[in-house]
């Protein structure tokens, strides 16, 4: 862009994610069976599949909440399979949750600020010894979050509202805001538009595209809304019964016979409507 944009904050470069041969087992149930997933830097990649396909399990293994039985997770080529979730956050891996995981009882602003927690340096004694430094850090943090996250996602009117009273769609957006406050290099969104109406869905889809374009961050998402997935993704990976059954561009995936079989199964499957909707969304 033009040099007049030099005031824009320095963003860490988008990360590349490589998952190889990932398997996960709960008792006798194979939740994931040797899946591969490659996410290009700066791309929007979607992980889709019928219910119970293992999408959220894959998400939890990638973000470090589950220990996989086999396989590796690499961030920019560095093996992070053994790194605990909190340290993956510090490496620039931010995520949201399928069932919103906000800090209830806190305001929107406090929730978002907590996203920066891992990156701040002053500790408990800093509060006494380096009063000035801690204070300055706090002010800078506040200014940065106001500018880059709250204004960007249009959350200014609710910044001091307790998150628990917000409608569902806005809570999802606050979760996205908190993930953004972490200055992520890869953003993992678990069903960002689940339960949203059309307007909210479009709003969220636009926000995700803006985040990718303006923040230059890699996005990996799990989603059931096929129309939205097909519209915004560069790359789609399809899981079924813990296995990867297809991967490629939205068009390739849509025409893949295995995918059609997985989704349509027998006749009268309600998911058929979803896939039809996707085709229409693509034309429109």
């Amino acid at each position: 862009m033009s040099p007049s944009h030099s005031a824009a904050p320095v963003r860490p470069p988008a990360a590349r994610l490589d998952v190889e041969n990932l398997s996960l087992q709960f008792g006798g149930v194979k939740a994931l069976d040797g899946i591969d997933l490659h996410v290009e830097p700066g791309s929007i990649t979607a992980l889709i599949g019928p219910n119970g396909a293992g999408k959220t399990s894959a998400f939890n293994a990638i973000s470090g909440f589950y220990r996989p039985k086999t396989g590796t997770v690499k961030l920019d080529g560095v093996d992070i399979t053994q790194v605990p979730a909190r340290d993956r956050a510090k490496l620039g891996l931010a995520r949201t949750f399928q069932n919103i995981a906000l800090f209830r009882g806190m305001t929107v602003l406090d929730n978002i600020k907590l996203g920066r927690h891992a990156h701040l340096t002053s500790g408990v004694f800093g509060a006494f010894l380096y009063w000035g430094k801690t204070r300055r850090e706090e002010m800078e943090l506040r200014a940065e979050i106001e500018r880059d996250v709250i204004d960007f996602l249009e959350l200014d009117h609710i910044r001091n509202v307790p998150v628990a009273i917000l409608p569902y769609g806005l809570q999802k957006k606050v979760e996205l805001a908190r993930a953004l406050a972490m200055r992520p290099r890869i953003l993992m969104l678990d069903e960002p538009v689940a339960g949203m109406n059309r307007e909210e869905t479009e709003d969220m889809a636009r926000a995700i595209l803006d985040v990718r374009d303006e923040w230059g961050v890699t996005v990996l998402l799990v989603e059931h809304d096929m129309g939205m997935v097909m519209d915004i993704s560069d790359h789609v990976c399809v899981l079924n019964f813990g296995r990867r059954i297809a991967a490629g561009s939205p068009t390739e995936v849509r025409n893949n016979p295995d995918v059609i079989k997985a989704y349509l199964g027998g006749s009268g499957d309600p998911r058929k409507a979803a896939l039809d909707g996707a085709a229409m969304g693509e034309v429109a």
Binding site: G64, R86, A101
Partner: peptide, 12 residues
């Protein structure tokens, strides 16, 4: 409030 969310933002 939420341990999963806390580790996801880097809290130990």
């Amino acid at each position: 409030t939420d341990r999963a969310a806390a580790s996801s933002v880097g809290i130990d």
